[in-house]
Design a protein around this nucleic acid. Structure first.
Lengths: 128, 128
DNA sequence: TTACAAATGCAACTAAGTTGCATTTAAGTA
DNA sequence: TACTTAAATGCAACTTAGTTGCATTTGTAA
């Protein structure tokens, strides 16, 4: 099973919590927060944050702060930018859409914020 | 004095707190957080957050979440992207450097994250 | 199977940001 | 210039994502 291999490759202990967490992340197609995760698997938040931060330092997972003060995580596959809608809070992956380079810098993450297509065309519909 | 005019134009009361806050923001050349601000002017945090959020809704100020869980604010002049260094935490303004458009979306903010020029060329120097 | 380091789970803590409320102040009016 | 009132301020209590300390459990290698 490949999830087990991902963990072993980084010389980390293969624990139930780690397998569950990576298995969940691998089924998502966009970044999710701890709040999303705890609805799906039962895991202490200390365990979650300790593991996710280990995954990040091992480059298995990448993350960013959204507008809602929460951090969103996803498996690090092909690097890509994200679009966060300020109105409906949806997060979109922008694969091969915007440049990921910047002269003289090492770019690790690119975030666009604004209004997504559906909020732009039907404004106010989802406003709080 | 122009700061007073900015406040009056939006039909807001011209208070000492608002003048001080805008005066400080106008002397900065990059976004700053409440923590930076309270070192420079004495202002209750409730007052700060209430005013800055009013300034934002009146489009006087813009802001974004950085990597350090704090929100950074700056006067809204010409729209531009920001580069946040994950290593030294410095924030750079990217004026006319990266595209601020995205087909089908309304872009309000663009953030690049990674390693800045000096951290890229002299790695580890500033690591914690 | 045993032993030990590493991982887990719980509770207590931290810190940015928010809210309720009593007091103060800006600014229009007499 | 003093009066009035709605809005702004400052304080304290609160909220909540994330962190830390510590006792217990678990994975792994001998």
């Amino acid at each position: 099973m490949q999830i087990k291999n991902i963990i072993e490759e980084k010389n980390l202990k293969v624990t139930t919590a780690r397998k569950e967490l990576l298995a969940l992340l691998s089924t998502q197609h966009k970044p999710i927060s701890f709040e999303d995760i705890k609805d799906k698997i039962s895991m202490d938040k200390a365990t979650f944050y300790r593991n996710i931060s280990k995954f990040e330092s091992e480059s298995i997972v990448s993350s960013f702060e959204s507008n809602d003060k929460k951090r969103y995580y996803e498996l690090q596959e092909s690097p890509h930018a994200h679009f966060i809608c300020n109105q409906c809070s949806n997060i979109e992956c922008l694969e091969n859409v915007v440049p990921l380079e910047l002269e003289g810098h090492t770019v690790m993450d690119v975030i666009y914020k604004g209004m997504c297509k559906s909020c732009t065309t039907s404004p106010d519909t989802k406003e709080k």
